[in-house]
C-alpha cells in the first residue's frame, strides 16, 4: 500500500493532540469523565497512529520499546506497592494513604501509564510480526 501525503500530514499534526487529550483524561480523571483506563487507551491510540502512519522507526525514536516495557512493569509494581503500603501501615489492603483526592490522582496516573504502555506493546509486536511476514 502506498502512503499518501494526506495521511502523513494528518497523522503528524493529529497525534500530539491525541496524546494531550489522553494526558488530560488521566490527570483530570477524578473531576471530569475519564480516568486511568480511558486515558491510557487514548494515549495508546495516539501512539498507534504514529506507528501506523509513520512507521515503527519513528515511534521507537521517540518512545523506545525498553522504556514502554518498563512503564508497563512499573505501573503494575507501583499499584501493588500502593496496596501493600496500606497493608503495612495497618489500614488494610489498598486503603487510601493521602488526603482525599491524592490517592485517586496517583492511582489514575499509574494505571494510565500502565494501560497505555501495555496496549502499545501489544500493537507494536503484532505490527512487527505483520511486517516480517511480507
Amino acid at each position: 500500500m502506498k502512503k499518501t501525503n494526506i495521511l502523513d500530514v494528518v497523522s503528524r499534526k493529529l497525534s500530539p493532540f491525541i496524546l494531550l487529550f489522553g494526558i488530560y483524561l488521566v490527570t483530570f480523571g477524578h473531576i471530569s469523565p475519564g480516568g486511568g483506563f480511558q486515558g491510557g487507551v487514548a494515549l495508546a491510540s495516539g501512539l498507534l497512529l504514529i506507528l501506523l502512519a509513520q512507521g515503527p522507526a519513528v515511534l521507537v525514536q521517540y518512545f523506545p520499546l525498553g522504556r514502554i516495557a518498563k512503564a508497563e512493569v512499573a505501573g503494575y509494581g507501583l499499584f501493588l506497592l500502593a496496596g501493600l503500603a496500606g497493608f503495612l501501615l495497618g489500614a488494610g489492603f489498598l486503603s487510601p494513604l493521602f488526603p482525599p483526592p491524592g490517592t485517586i490522582f496517583i492511582l489514575n496516573i499509574v494505571i494510565g501509564a500502565k494501560v497505555g504502555a501495555g496496549i502499545t506493546l501489544i500493537c507494536w509486536y503484532l505490527f512487527h510480526e505483520m511486517e516480517e511476514q511480507e
Binding site: V41, L48, C123
Partner: peptide, 10 residues
C-alpha cells in the same frame, strides 16, 4: 470514552 477508544481504535 472507552468504547470510542477501544472499539474504534485498537
Amino acid at each position: 470514552l472507552t468504547e470510542a477508544a477501544v472499539g474504534a481504535g485498537v
